[in-house]
C-alpha cells in the first residue's frame, strides 16, 4: 500500500502537470484555462514532494499534496511581486519540476 500510494501520487502529479500546461497554453476557452490554473495550483508542486513520502493514509496524502502545492505557488508568486519580476507563466516551471520528480520516482520505484 505504501508504494502504491506514492506511485499514485506520482502518476497524479505527471497527469495533472501535463494537463495543466496543455490547458493553460493551448486551450481556446477560458473555462478550460481555469481548470488548468486550478490543477497547477493544487497538484504539481505537492506531488513532486509527496511522491517520495508516504503519509500513511489517502486523505493525508491528498491533503498534504494540495497544501504543499498551494504554499509553493503562493511563495513563488509573492517573490515575483517583491522583486517586481511579474511573469505568471513562470509558475509552469512547477509543473516541469513535478514531471521530473514524479517520473524519477516512478523509474526508481520501491522507495518508501
Amino acid at each position: 500500500m505504501t508504494g502504491s500510494r506514492t506511485q499514485l501520487t506520482a502518476y497524479g502529479g505527471i497527469i495533472s502537470s501535463v494537463l495543466a500546461a496543455v490547458l493553460l497554453l493551448a486551450a481556446p476557452w477560458h473555462a478550460a484555462s481555469l481548470i488548468g490554473a486550478f490543477l497547477l495550483a493544487c497538484v504539481p508542486a505537492g506531488a513532486a514532494v509527496m511522491c517520495w513520502i508516504d503519509s500513511g493514509e489517502a486523505a493525508a496524502q491528498a491533503g498534504l499534496t494540495l497544501v504543499i502545492s498551494l504554499a509553493a505557488v503562493a511563495i513563488f508568486s509573492a517573490v515575483m511581486i517583491w522583486i517586481a519580476a511579474w511573469e505568471p507563466r513562470a509558475l509552469l516551471a512547477l509543473a516541469l519540476l513535478a514531471v521530473g520528480s514524479c517520473a524519477y520516482r516512478l523509474r526508481r520505484g520501491g522507495l518508501r
Binding site: L24, H30, S33, L34, G36, A37, F38, L40, A41, L70, V73, A74, I75, F76, S77, A78, M80, I81, W82, P88, R89, L91
Partner: peptide
Amino acid sequence: WPALFAAVAALGSLAHV
C-alpha cells in the same frame, strides 16, 4: 502580506480569468 493575493493574481492572469 501578499502571498495569497499574488497567487490568485498569477493564476487568474495565467487563465485569463
